[in-house]
């Protein structure tokens, strides 16, 4: 119980710092891949502080409420995860967070936001099957949905579920909002829907979104860590490697359309995830 509380507390305090630093490292690495010098490591923090100081224009009073709800659900989802809670609950809390974000975008009148919200929901449709397959796979291996139990699983999860792991990496690109799947809100407003889901956010609302995104990234890397939990140090290395691999992929792809996204992710889920589970069931007997 004590460790659970400690895990949740650590998450609340350390995750934004870690997420912000990761975002900074992401920007430097991206810049170097593009032949640029790039911003300082702490730039994301400066950005958020600056946003926090800015006057926030809101279209209606629900808008920031939804953003707050999004933030809260991301926090809850991560706290559950790092407290060793139920994996399914973690995934569904994260889903609810995404729905809140889409509702926030819907509450405004901007057509860009509306298209962004629609795309966010389509993206959720694209990654959700793979997330659930991951939970099922972990259950089959570790005989539990509890993260605390799974972290102490005897069989290294990544060795039992290599296909599921790869499939997860595939949909991770969507969640990290990276090319080729950065449809609903790319890191740059240079997009046909002008940053889509967050078009109508400014000031503190947008700052909240940024910080929530850092939290989210750390949580997602937590999933990666879970696959390697048999050796916690290796898990951290793996999580970092995965993150920088995603940055590289972000720089090596054009943005695709939602049709291609759904098709590709479902194909990945079916090919990598489902076949992995079938094979595991077959050999585990």
């Amino acid at each position: 119980m004590k460790t659970a509380l400690l895990g949740a507390l650590l998450w609340l305090v350390v995750a934004p710092i870690l997420g912000g630093l990761l975002a900074g490292a992401d920007r430097i690495l991206s810049a170097r891949l593009q032949g640029r010098v790039g911003p300082p490591l702490l730039q994301p923090f400066y950005d958020v502080l600056k946003l926090w100081d800015k006057r926030g224009g809101v279209v209606n009073r629900f808008q920031n409420f939804y953003m707050l709800a999004f933030f809260a659900f991301v926090l809850v989802s991560g706290a559950l995860f790092f407290a060793g809670g139920d994996l399914l609950l973690v995934i569904f809390a994260l889903t609810v967070a995404g729905v809140m974000l889409a509702l926030g975008a819907w509450s405004t009148n901007s057509p860009y936001s509306h298209v962004g919200a629609e795309r966010e929901l389509l993206q959720m449709m694209a990654y959700e099957p793979m997330f659930l397959l991951m939970a099922v796979g972990m259950y089959l291996v570790g005989r539990s949905f509890h993260v605390g139990v799974l972290a102490r699983a005897e069989v290294p999860l990544v060795l039992a579920l290599p296909g599921v792991f790869l499939g997860f990496l595939f949909v991770l690109t969507i969640k990290l909002r990276k090319s080729p799947f950065d449809l609903s809100a790319s890191h740059h407003a240079h997009q046909e829907i002008v940053r889509g889901i967050t078009t109508e956010y400014s000031g503190r609302g947008l700052a909240l979104f940024e910080v929530a995104h850092w939290y989210e990234n750390v949580l997602l890397l937590g999933f990666v860590w879970l696959f390697f939990s048999f050796n916690p140090a290796l898990g951290i290395v793996a999580a970092l490697v995965v993150y920088f691999l995603e940055v590289f992929v972000d720089n090596a792809y054009a943005r695709l359309t939602w049709r291609t996204t759904v098709r590709a992710t479902w194909a990945a889920a079916a090919l990598l995830g489902v076949s992995n589970l079938i094979l595991f069931q077959y050999f585990a007997r």
């Binding site: 991206s30 891949l33 593009q34 950065d182 997009q191 090596a252 054009a254 943005r255």
Partner: peptide
């Protein structure tokens, strides 16, 4: 390249 979201290609072309 920028229009189809390929930032690195955009940067390299402009380099």
């Amino acid at each position: 390249a920028d229009a189809f979201g390929f930032e690195s290609l955009f940067m390299h072309t402009w380099r």
